[in-house]
Design a protein around this nucleic acid. Sequence first.
DNA 1: CGTATGCTTGAATCACGTCAACTGATGTGG
DNA 2: CCACATCAGTTGACGTGATTCAAGCATACG
Lengths: 245, 245
Amino acid sequence: MTPITTPPTRRGMSARLSDTDWEAVVACCTGIETWSARSLISRKGDPLDRSLLLLDGWVGRHVPGPHRDLRELVALEIPGDFVDLHSFPLGTLDHDVTAMTDVRMAVLPHDKLRALMRDRPETALALWGQTQLDAAIHRYWSFRVGALRASGRVANFLCEMHSRLMLADLADPTGFDLPLTQADLGEACGMSAVHVNRVMRELREGASCTVRDGRVQIHDYDRLCRIGQFEPYFLTFGPDQAGSA
Amino acid sequence: MTPITTPPTRRGMSARLSDTDWEAVVACCTGIETWSARSLISRKGDPLDRSLLLLDGWVGRHVPGPHRDLRELVALEIPGDFVDLHSFPLGTLDHDVTAMTDVRMAVLPHDKLRALMRDRPETALALWGQTQLDAAIHRYWSFRVGALRASGRVANFLCEMHSRLMLADLADPTGFDLPLTQADLGEACGMSAVHVNRVMRELREGASCTVRDGRVQIHDYDRLCRIGQFEPYFLTFGPDQAGSA
DNA sequence: CGTATGCTTGAATCACGTCAACTGATGTGG
DNA sequence: CCACATCAGTTGACGTGATTCAAGCATACG
């Protein structure tokens, strides 16, 4: 485990933390670790005594079915996201955690977080809020897969990732990098990889967006939002954002 | 608002709280309120200064789409569940909350919870854990709708509700009351009401279970689990359960 | 009564999954 | 360096699972 040299930068979801909350979190961080693409970070049911803050790369979370061939990608984390902060109150997770790309993460031991909980209740509340943003995204994924049909699901997914990546400074209005295979997208959107491919051709031919070589080029953002029934801005809950100190 | 006469009984999900945590929560409770079936409890984006603990009845949570005709039922709460404890760290919600039946709930003002957070960090952590159980259920719903096909979804849904209702003493091995219409089930499972009807006939004719007059009769639990790829026991995370004091 | 709501079923349509074949890129070992 | 394997993407053909539209019934309620 690399010791910390420069503190992790605050961006994306965790940028909603206040300055003081962020500093308190950084103070809990005991090091940086890395994983290589497609490696398993933790498995469903593993006892966990630390949480991770994603600095670079993408991380996926899969709920496995009872048999090996059945699983669903239920969340994707991007830089600035807490990957498994929800393991802190529970001590374990109900899903697998996998590096989708090469990944760099900051380590936050649970005992440090417990101490922070005692010393700084407002910061604890802000962290609780972070896990609730995660839950809100879960609900949005349920909406996507349950209420939309294939083309809407893919378009909606791309819109969500675009919004989130914008907040992490990893997208601009013209597009973003998407380090996922069509099979991954299928697992995320509840459809077969083959159909993902067809939908993407449809989006391309409809001049909404082009996905090629791990990059999404957005040609017509409004049209993409319409197809995906997506309303900007995602996760902007009125004037005040996510409980913080 | 009715003042509290007898304290709410602890059951279902909240029964995972320790005695002392439960007492601390009950001490936060300022009253009991009721809603009638099919009434709106709170709307997406409403500012909220209190959370609710469900005592009697069923509550649904819907994520609305941009247009009125599109929404998804993303969660169902049963007695013993915290309905919107996640509004405490966020101050608002990303979804609507609706009484599916006549409903009775205990009221927990956020300022009381904030005080509890200062005074009893372990209890706060246990409450955080409750919201994370809720999130784990969200993930399971994503799995259900994304990874299973219609008959599996319905069977899986019935298994989940059976498991949860067992913990709340509202089910026995032979069945349980299900106060939902087929349209509700469709919104929960991401399918049309008509198809819900057909699937339920299939389950009935396959001698797995019968749903009639708001009651689910389980004929063959193992078969229902197999169809729904459901493994008992749901939300049993290893030996220790949900962080508590 | 009449109307509304929920359940049930049939028939037509189509969205989507499955299977299979082919491509191009990348990588590996002889 | 080439033969071969692998893996992501692409497309066609085919079958089926699911939606939609429609009608018919039952029950509850004004």
